Simulated scan of single mutants.
Amino acid sequence: MQIIVNNWKVEPSLNGLVHRETGEIRRLGEFHFIMLETLVNHAGEVVSRDFLMSEVWKNRVVGNNSLLTAVYALRVALGDDGRVQEIIKTIPKKGYLLNKDFVVLLPDEPLSASQPLTQPDPEPVADVTDAPPASAPAPRNKHRLIVLAALLLLIGCGLIWLIYPGGQNSAPLATSRLSIKEELSPQNDKIKLFRLHRTGVNTSGAVLSSHIAESLEGINMLLTAHKATLTIYYYGAVQKMSVILLVQNQCGKEYQLLMEIRSWQQDVKKLGQLIHKETERTLNEMPACS
C-alpha cells in the first residue's frame, strides 16, 4: 500500500519522501520518519505529545525541543506552513493532528520489466529550520558524496529562488549557476565546510567560516571527543542563512538537518552558538554504536 501525504509518497526504503510529479527525494532523519509514520497511522486523530515522545524516542533521553523540532521538520518536508498548519495541526494543550484530507492510500504499483529493482541510495536531507540533526558523508565513499552534492544543489536552487523571488536582485536563469566551494580549515580536521555560491550574486559578506571561527573550533573539539565528523553546506544571503548539517558518528550512523536562520547578520555569535548547540544535541541523541 502506497501512502501519499500532500502529493509526497512515503518511502520506507529511502527513509524519506518522493514527490509523485517531480521525483524529488527528501530524506528524513530517523526520528522524523518514525514520527511521520506515527502521525499517518493516526491520521485524523489528536495524538498527545507524551504518546509521540514514547513512540518516536522510546526510552531515550532527549532535549525539551526535540518534539517541536521534529514537527517543524515534517512541516517543512511536506510543504506545510507553520502558521496556517493545513497538514499538521497543533492542538493546544492536547497534541498534534495530521489532517486526513491530505492523506491518500493507493495500491502498490506493479514493477515493469524496465523498472530497476533497486535504486541508488540518495543521501538524507533533513528536515528543519529551527533546530537540527545532521550527518556527514563518509569521505571514503566518493559516490555517495557526489549524489549528496547533486541533491544539495537542487535544494539550493529551490532555496535561492525563494530568497530571490524576482526583481532587481534576481539573476536571469540563463546566466545564473550554482556551484559548491569548499572552505578549507586545517585546524578543524573533523569539519568540512562547503558554501553554495550563485554566479552573479555577491555573497562575500556571508562567508560562514569567517563569522563563526571560534564556534567551529569548539565544535571540532566536541566532534573529536565523540569520534564523529560534521559536514556543513550553506547558502548565505542578506536576509537569511540556509544551512544543512550532516553529522556522522564512528559507526557510520548519520543525522541530517536543514536550518534557515533569518536576520543572521544581526548577531553572528548566536549563529555559531546555534550550530554548536544543535551539533551537540544531535550527537547526544544518536544511539551508541552496537
Results as ranks from 00 to 15, higher is better:
5 V>G: 00
5 V>M: 09
6 N>F: 12
8 W>Y: 02
9 K>L: 12
13 S>I: 12
14 L>Q: 04
17 L>A: 07
18 V>T: 00
24 E>W: 09
25 I>M: 04
31 F>L: 03
37 E>P: 07
39 L>W: 10
43 A>N: 10
45 E>T: 03
46 V>N: 06
46 V>K: 04
46 V>F: 00
46 V>C: 11
49 R>I: 15
50 D>H: 08
50 D>E: 13
54 S>V: 14
58 K>Y: 05
59 N>K: 06
60 R>I: 00
60 R>Q: 12
65 N>L: 15
66 S>C: 10
71 V>A: 04
71 V>Y: 03
71 V>E: 02
74 L>A: 07
75 R>T: 09
78 L>R: 02
81 D>H: 06
85 Q>I: 06
87 I>P: 01
88 I>R: 00
88 I>S: 01
89 K>N: 14
90 T>Q: 14
92 P>K: 08
94 K>P: 01
101 D>P: 12
106 L>I: 11
107 P>M: 05
107 P>Y: 05
109 E>A: 05
112 S>E: 12
118 T>I: 12
118 T>W: 10
120 P>G: 02
122 P>D: 05
129 T>D: 10
129 T>H: 08
133 P>I: 15
135 S>F: 07
136 A>Y: 03
141 N>E: 08
142 K>V: 13
143 H>D: 15
149 A>K: 11
151 L>E: 06
151 L>V: 13
156 G>A: 07
156 G>F: 02
157 C>Q: 15
159 L>D: 03
164 Y>F: 14
168 Q>K: 05
169 N>V: 02
172 P>D: 02
173 L>E: 12
177 R>C: 13
177 R>F: 06
178 L>Q: 07
185 S>M: 12
185 S>P: 04
186 P>H: 05
190 K>A: 13
190 K>M: 15
190 K>C: 13
196 L>M: 03
199 T>Y: 07
201 V>G: 04
201 V>F: 11
206 A>W: 09
210 S>R: 14
218 G>L: 09
219 I>P: 03
223 L>W: 08
223 L>A: 00
224 T>A: 13
233 Y>N: 09
234 Y>W: 01
235 Y>T: 10
236 G>W: 06
236 G>L: 05
237 A>R: 08
237 A>S: 14
242 S>L: 08
245 L>Y: 01
248 Q>L: 12
249 N>F: 10
249 N>H: 04
252 G>C: 04
253 K>C: 12
260 E>D: 04
267 D>V: 02
273 Q>D: 11
274 L>Q: 15
274 L>A: 15
280 E>P: 03
281 R>P: 03
282 T>W: 02
285 E>C: 09
